[in-house]
Structures are given as C-alpha cells and as structure tokens.
Design a protein around this nucleic acid. Structure first.
Lengths: 219, 219
DNA sequence: TCTTGAATAATTGTATACAATTATACTTGT
DNA sequence: ACAAGTATAATTGTATACAATTATTCAAGA
C-alpha cells in the first residue's frame, strides 16, 4: 500500500524545501515558525526541526533570536553547480561503468525508450521526470554513497532551470541523445568514455542555458 | 571579546558531530535523546534538532519511532571522498587563482611560513591546524559558496585519516611543499597550473595513504 | 526449557508552557 | 511634527507534558 508514513518534521522539511527550490519563496523572505506551522497544521516543534535542516543545507539562514530567512539558490550558485556537476557526473559515470548491475542497465534502457517516446511527443513534463530518474539510476549505479548524495542534492538545486531548459525546443532532443551516449558507454563498461560523455552532457546543458539566457531560466 | 553565543542546538550538533568524526562513536551506535541531553545538560529539544541535522548530513540514520543510529564515514566513503576532492580542490584552486584577494594571498604566505617552521620542528598538531586553514583560505578565495560548502564538509569528514597521515614522517614535508606549489600558482594567477597542482596534491595524499595502509589510518 | 503473551518500562513524536529576546506601538515632551 | 523612551506585543529558545510507539520483563503454559 506504500503508506506515506513520514514524520511531520520530514513533511514540513520537504514542503519548505520544495517551495524554495521551486522559487515560491525568494531570497530574504522571513520564515516564521508559527505561520508555517499554522499553514501546515502542525506545531512549532517540527517546523523548527525543518528550518534547522534547511539551514545546514544552506537554503535558509538562521539569525539567533531573530528568525529564519530564505537564502535559496542564486544564479551564481547554479552556474557554479554546473561546473561542479560536470566533473562529478563524469566521475559518477566512470564508476557506474564499472559497478552497474544488470537490473540497472535494464532500467536505464527502459528510461531511454520512454524518453525518446515522450521527446517525440513533446511531453516535457514527463521528460523532466525521466531526466531525474536517468541521473538517479546513474548515481545509484556508481556505488558511492557520497557521490550519490552530493549529486542528488545538486540535481535538485538546479531543478528550476532544468525545467525551463528542457521545455525549450531542441534541447530535449539533444539531452536524450546525450543520455543514450552515456548509457551506451556505461553498458559497454567503457569507463573513460562514460566519464567523457557525462562531462560533455553537463557542459552542453550549461552551454545551452548560456544561449537561452539565464535570466529567462530563473523566472 | 568573541563571546561564543551559539544556541544550545548548535552546540549539541557540533559536539555529536565531532565525536562521530573523531571516531568516538562507531557505526551502529544508538544515540538516545535523553542520554545525550543529560550528558550535555540540556533538554531533548536541542538534541533532536541536532540529530535531525546530522541525519541530513548522512552521519546519522533516524528510524522513525525507533531512534538515531550512527552511520559515520566509512573507509569506502573516505576513499571516494579523496577522488571527489581531487577534482573539486582542482576546480577550487583554478577559481582561487582568478578571484583571490591581496589579503588572502598574505594569509596564505603566512600560513606557508608557519607550516614550514612547524614542519621542521615536528609539531604535527600545529601542522594539522595549519593544513585546515590553508585549504579554508583556498575555499574562501574561490568565491564560490557551493564549492566552499562541499569542500569544507569533505575536508572535515576525512579529518581522522588526515591527522594520522600528517603525523607520519615524510608526508608532512611533502604536503607543505605541495601547498607552496599550489600557492605559487594561485599567486601567479595561473589557473590551469593551480588546478593541476591542487589535484596532484590530493592524489598524492591519497597515494601516501595507500602506502601507509588505510586500516592503520582509521584507528 | 522454550515459547507466548500480557504488563510494564523506556523511548520517540508532537504540542504546549514559559522565559528571554526582539519588534512594534504608543505616549510624552520639546 | 519629531524623537526618545516605555509599555506592549510578537517571536524565538528551551523545557516539559502527554500521547503513541517500541522494547523489556516476567509469568504461565506446552
């Protein structure tokens, strides 16, 4: 039945985090414990836990005795993250080429077929979701807890611009094609080629965003 | 006066975190809210906040309604982190070569002089502290919030093996010499050379640990 | 002896109470 | 009208109360 049995604290954390990453909150906004608690129907305790976690992540700044203020992910942060990801997704693909399981290869193949299908139909919403999953499979396949954690976070931090980027004509097709190249290299256990393809994929994503204009992607 | 005016939650967080990173707690250890609170003289509330933060970091695993269990940083994690750091410290040095300020250059120079002094005296405790600071200056000089955050965390995560490594004869001298090379490249604003030197520095640190035997470094 | 199950204790999850701090509104004097 | 100072309200920080869940103990029966 997959009963969602998360604690209130986790639910509050995810809600606020999503709102920040989706751009619902803006940098400098104050997050008052009572307001959020009332909106979500919980007391201040789980809200505080969530805010403390968001502070650790750098998405929120807590000023003692004053309050919690949204930091969010700035344009500069996102550009930096793409440079970091270019290196780390490369490393991840390299390790995935060595460690990937047959089941993970199968899931990647299915992901690619679906991506190509939805790409041809112009279903951008599904493409974003499939893009999420493609990268997650690769993170998982790398076999590295730390690499998975940092890449998963960064992938989520750039969600907003990724959505806008994939929605633009042309980019989705290129992105899916690049995914296939990465997958082929990983399936062939060609670590160096996988690394290069993954690095190139992130670089070309960023270059596409340069062309589209970052201001348009941040709306 | 620098009055340490942190909240209890922050203090508890740092205490538990240090204990985990120093190896005082071991993987699987249960962290009971009441015990920790009693030891530190605080109630459960700030302890819970700390545990939730540590969970986000991956240092602790929280099983709903059961408790918090230490995860820590495994040998495999540390080896992965060195590969990740090799890439990211390279990127960091590259950016530092572009963005470093005169004040930061001065602080780096002072750091190197002190390092060479304490290295010749065999003061390994000071060397660990100076090594911490050298890297922090570079993180700061990169001008990248995200890069700084991830590298700072990772540098702390490998504290235990770094201490043991620097304590061994020979390595401290090499490490300081490598720091100087990185600093020279950064000061010359030679981004590519800085990147290469920093990458090599981390690689050679890891190779040294390979030679020393990781088991000995994890005690 | 081993298992089972109920009673009890311990622990976590959440809400609330209260103290400390900060922000706001109001009053008073110039 | 404006400033300063004070009372009031709002907000955060921490502790505690209580409910829900899990762990432990112990007795009874096979």
């Amino acid at each position: 039945m997959s009963e969602d049995n998360y604690s209130l604290g986790s639910r509050v954390y995810r809600t606020i985090r999503d709102d920040i990453l989706e751009g619902k909150y803006h940098s400098g906004d104050e997050l008052k414990e009572k307001n959020i608690g009332d909106e979500l129907g919980v007391s201040r305790t789980p809200v505080r836990e969530a805010l403390r976690q968001l502070e650790l992540e750098g998405l929120v700044s807590i000023v003692p005795n004053k309050g919690a203020f949204v930091i969010g992910v700035s344009l500069q942060d996102i550009q930096d993250i793409y440079e970091i990801r270019a290196l780390l997704e490369g490393l991840c693909a390299k390790w995935a080429a060595i460690n990937i399981s047959d089941e993970q290869i199968t899931e990647m193949d299915e992901n690619l077929v679906l991506s190509e299908f939805h790409e041809s139909k112009g279903n951008y919403e599904q493409l974003v979701s499939l893009d999420n999953r493609f990268h997650e499979i690769m993170y998982e396949a790398s076999g590295s807890k730390e690499l998975k954690r940092v890449l998963k976070d960064y992938h989520e931090y750039v969600l907003r611009v990724r959505k806008n980027s994939l929605g633009a004509a042309g980019r989705a097709k290129n992105s899916t094609a690049e995914h296939r190249k990465i997958a082929e290299a990983i399936k062939a256990h060609d670590a160096l080629r996988a690394e290069e393809c993954a690095r190139t994929h992130i670089k070309s994503t960023k270059e596409n965003m340069d062309k589209m204009g970052w201001e348009n992607l941040m709306n």
